[in-house]
Amino acid sequence: MNPHDEHKEGIGGMANPRRYGIERVAYWLMRLTGLGLLGYFIAHIYETSNILRGRVGWEEFLDLTQTTEGHIFMTLVIGMCVFHTVNGIRIMLGHGGIGVGKPARPDYPYIPASQNSRHKIGIYSAIVLAAIAMMYGMAVMFGE
C-alpha cells in the first residue's frame, strides 16, 4: 500500500450488495440492469442492422432467438427491463425528495426515515414484477 493511498474501498466494495440492506441490493441491481440493457440496446441495433443484408440475413439472425439459449437471453432481458423500469420510477421519485420521510427530532434507535417501507415495498415490487414477467415470457417462448 502506498502511503498516499486514499484507501478507497474500490469497485469490490461498491458492488458488494450484502451489507446495507435491500436498498443497497436495489442499487446494485439497478446498475447491473442498466448496463445489461445498454449492452442489449447496442446488440439490438447491430441485430436489426442485419436488414441491410436482405431478407435471408435478417431471418438467419432472427433464428438465433429461437434457440433455448436465445429464449433464456430474452427472459433475462425481460427481467432487466421490468426491474429497471419499476425501480427507476421509485428512484426518480426518491431523487425528487418524494416518499423519503419527514425531518424530525431523532430518537434512539435512530431508524432512518428515508429507508422506509414505501421504498422497500417499491424495491420488492420491482423484483416480484420482474420475476412474474420472466415467468410469463418463458411460458410464451418455451410453450410454443
Binding site: R19, Y20, G21, E23, R24, A26, Y27, M30, R31, I91, G94, H95, P106, D107, Y108, Y110, P112, S114, Q115
Partner: peptide, 13 residues
C-alpha cells in the same frame, strides 16, 4: 444514487 447506506450507518440519526 440514493443507495441509502450512509443513513444506515449514521450513529446520530
Amino acid at each position: 444514487h440514493f443507495a441509502g447506506s450512509c443513513s444506515q450507518v449514521c450513529p446520530k440519526g
